[in-house]
Amino acid sequence: MANSSQVTEFLLLGFSSFGELQPVLFVLFLGLYLIILSGNFTILSVIRLERSLHMPMYFFLCVLSTSEVFYTIVILPKMLINLLSVLRTLSFTSCATQVFFLGFRITNCLLLGVMGYDRYTAICQPLRYPVLMGWRVCAQLAATCIVSGFLISLVATTLVFSLPFCGSNRVNHYFYDISPVIRLAYAETCIKELVIFICGVLVLVVPLIFIYISYGFIVRTILKIPSADGKRKAFSTCASHLIVVIVHYGCAFSIYLRPSAKSSSGKDRLVTVTYTIVTPLLNPMVYSLRSKDVQLAI
């Protein structure tokens, strides 16, 4: 380490191996990015303007859409610039800042858990729903998700960027994520990786268990409904949330809850593209296509 210089900037390899296909990827990702922005802003505008949608379920959808928009802003513009530029470097401080603001994805995981609780109270506790999910409670739950997300992100960012970086500065990814950056550290990282892994378990497994428990009670309640039409309507109110949960957590588990030794950079990038682009694109499409109230409002 005495003969090595401290890394002051990181070089993002991104999709450099694709060569002449990079302009094609730029057009593809730019189109998807514009669809993500327009879809989420449409959802936000419609819910804001249509009074019939002023209910907890759509309030949390607004918070989720806002978080998804900021999450894509942190990643996609820089990725699009890198697809057309030769110099793909970013300063040490800017890299740490980007990793910190990936706390929006932690917020999204926690929000999906809260949305599961909202569906539980709506179906299993309909008479107490206005009390259990009052506007003050909804605001407190949303604020807790946001604050918790960025506190966990701050812990992970501090652990990673307190390490010495004195060797290679080439990040084999298309944005600055914790796993590809920590591999470049010039120190033993097992303890810090374990702490980050535990944080990942808390962020992913705990909300998912909470969602499973909520839907266990929901299914039990729906099966007690005598009419087939009543059962169909009850299941329909949960279907959109379940689709988003399956895609979101499926991608997140495959990226963040694996030992680093078993990770593959190529597969990581493919799954992370899905996680970064498809889930923000999926939310407005699923909720707008499956909700008649949203369709009427639009």
Rank of each mutant, 00 (worst) to 15 (best):
L28I: 15
L30G: 13
G31P: 04
I35F: 05
G39Y: 09
G39W: 09
I43K: 05
S45P: 01
S45F: 14
V46N: 07
I47S: 05
L49T: 10
E50L: 01
E50R: 15
E50V: 03
H54C: 01
H54E: 05
M55H: 07
P56H: 07
P56V: 04
Y58N: 13
Y58E: 10
Y58A: 05
F59T: 06
F60N: 01
L61G: 03
V63Y: 03
L64Y: 09
S65N: 09
S65F: 02
S65P: 00
S65I: 05
T66I: 07
T66F: 14
V69N: 03
V69S: 01
Y71V: 02
Y71K: 09
Y71S: 08
I73W: 14
I73P: 00
V74P: 00
L76E: 08
P77W: 12
L80V: 10
L80G: 09
V86K: 00
V86F: 02
T89A: 02
L90D: 05
S91D: 07
F92N: 03
T93C: 00
Q98S: 13
Q98I: 13
V99I: 11
F100A: 05
F100C: 03
L102P: 00
L102N: 12
G103I: 04
G103M: 04
R105G: 02
T107G: 01
N108Q: 14
C109A: 15
L110K: 14
L111I: 14
G113R: 10
V114I: 10
Y117S: 02
D118R: 00
R119N: 04
R119G: 01
T121E: 06
A122C: 07
I123C: 01
I123M: 02
C124Q: 03
C124D: 04
C124T: 08
P126N: 12
L127A: 13
L127Q: 14
R128F: 06
Y129T: 05
P130I: 13
V131A: 06
V131F: 05
L132T: 08
L132G: 01
W135G: 08
A139L: 14
A139G: 06
Q140T: 13
L141P: 00
A142V: 07
C145Y: 07
I146K: 03
I146F: 15
G149Q: 09
F150V: 05
L151Y: 06
I152M: 12
S153Y: 10
L154D: 03
V155K: 06
V155N: 01
A156K: 15
T157Q: 05
T157L: 02
